[in-house]
Write a protein that binds this DNA or RNA. Structure first.
Lengths: 294, 294
DNA sequence: AAAATCATCTGACTAAAGTCAGGTAATGCA
DNA sequence: TGCATTACCTGACTTTAGTCAGATGATTTT
């Protein structure tokens, strides 16, 4: 690692935190301490949620959070009620007045961003946005964690549900997991199957599975990235890990199939070194088959 | 301005401030409140300075700052003494122990930056650094302020001194302002001369002058950018403003000369539409002459 | 059904950060 | 010379942000 790089990061951090301080200051303009403003904002973004979620998201002490909520309640900005399902927990929602306040904070955030952009002419603005997007993708992608997961875990099931829902939305004739979903999820457990879940900041953002086809070949299935995490290279990282798993399991070949509507996926497989091969299974939803020698 | 752009800036701000929190947290690891740590750091960066400068840089109340300084003094990290020149003012310097602490904070900053970089592989790291550099240049450049200044003002004199010092360091045979410096600074006042000073965050970072040659032609001189602000497009912005001044003054041509050692300057003049012409003056330090029709 | 665990609340604290109104000595200006 | 201004200091105060040790009632485990 180069010293120049470190210096660049440090200069950048200094500059950006300085500018970002403008946001905190603008938040204070509504005459409410920052802690309360942040809390109100977080409740608004979540659109009402359980107190426990706020506690972990903002990293607050439970006593402290309780008091902050009480204060917002006294200001008639939020309402607290018992959470459904668990009588111990409580959930918060914004009142009408709270929603107005939240929107005022939204407007302030927009304003700060707009002020920044207005300093630049159109081509420079484009470059700034592009560079910000690049940094965002790189940093979010860097925070990606991939782990082998039991297919029955809550996050795994969530990912798979999303995946199937997306297939049935995108495939020309819909999608029925029973017909083309391949092996049931319960088989995606070692030693003949592996399910990976990718997370960013604890939140699941993607999945992928490897199944044993025979002694020498594995099959990659159910590679999916959450819409919010696309463009970060999540799928490519999942593929890499699946191939590593395949190698560790002693496979020398991995195969996969895909539907013709998923053209981005096909482009990615090619880029990763997969070559198209003849049909090797009877999946009615597949139009292309690929393999890669490890 | 597009809504997408604003959202990108907001997402970026959120992400970056979140990561920057890591730095603040690491600063706390030395068992000193953040306020004191920041102050110590600022004194160290400045290498000792007047109290008033710290007050404006950190935006602190004078009473509060006074107490913070007292606390650092009690810890034997800094020493306060009367500022030279003004008996009311005080100046601060780090003690030996203070310097050690400062360096520990420096090391922490480096570490945080390194941790970030270590999350990425080499090509991604390169992209991150490039994007950070781009953002830094754009934002710093956006904060550039250019104004017509009296050549006797402190900032103007500082810029001109720096400019002459640099010429004498770079020219093959040194530089004597008396021989090639052109008209004395006192002539750079309307209606026959204009001196521009460029500033970023109040700090002067460059200068440039326009002088009347005759009824229809102006001459651009003393265009200089402080080393710390190079690469931000300061000189190009100064040139643009000087040309605008020339147009307003009724000139239809601007000319300028330059030394052969200043190749970046020559490249910039060409890029801005200047064309090389024969010698039009007797400046012994000039090797190239340019002009541009407005 | 008892015991353990959990989510939240309450009260009693503390440290940090900051504000404000004078006060003192040095400086600048008429 | 004298009066306003400036740079900093001091004391008295407030707000913000947070910690911690129980208390309470719901839920889960045994």
């Amino acid at each position: 690692m180069q010293i120049d790089d470190i210096q660049q990061v440090r200069r950048f951090n200094r500059l950006v935190t300085q500018r970002a301080g403008a946001l905190e200051e603008s938040y204070l303009s509504r005459g409410r301490p920052l802690g309360e403003a942040r809390l109100l904002f977080e409740i608004g973004v979540a659109g009402g949620c359980d107190v426990a979620l706020l506690r972990t998201r903002l990293g607050l002490d439970s006593g402290y959070l309780s008091r902050l909520l009480r204060s917002l309640e006294r200001q008639r900005l939020v309402e607290l009620r018992k959470a459904e399902g668990d009588g111990r927990a409580r959930s918060v929602v914004l009142t009408e007045k709270g929603r107005e306040e939240f929107e005022a904070y939204e407007a302030l955030s927009d304003e700060v961003a707009e002020d920044l952009l207005s300093l630049l002419d159109e081509p420079r603005r484009k470059r700034l946005i592009a560079a910000m997007g690049e940094i965002e993708r790189l940093l979010r992608g860097a925070a990606l964690e991939i782990s082998v997961e039991d297919p029955a875990s809550a996050d795994a099931r969530w990912c798979l549900e999303q995946y199937f829902a997306e297939l049935s939305a995108r495939f020309e004739n819909g999608f029925d997991p029973g017909k083309g979903g391949g092996p049931p999820s319960s088989e995606m457990r070692p030693p003949n199957g592996w399910l990976l879940v990718a997370r960013i900041d604890r939140e699941p953002v993607g999945c992928g599975a490897l199944m044993r086809l025979d002694e020498v070949a594995g099959e990659i299935k159910r590679v999916w990235t959450a819409p919010a995490a696309r463009g970060l290279g999540v799928a490519a990282r999942l593929m890499g890990r699946l191939e590593a798993l395949a190698r560790d399991a002693g496979f020398s070949i991995v195969r996969l199939d895909t539907n013709r509507t998923l053209s981005e996926a096909r482009a990615m497989y090619r880029k990763l070194g997969y070559v198209e091969i003849p049909r090797y299974n009877d999946n009615p939803y597949a139009h292309h088959w690929f393999e890669k020698r490890l």
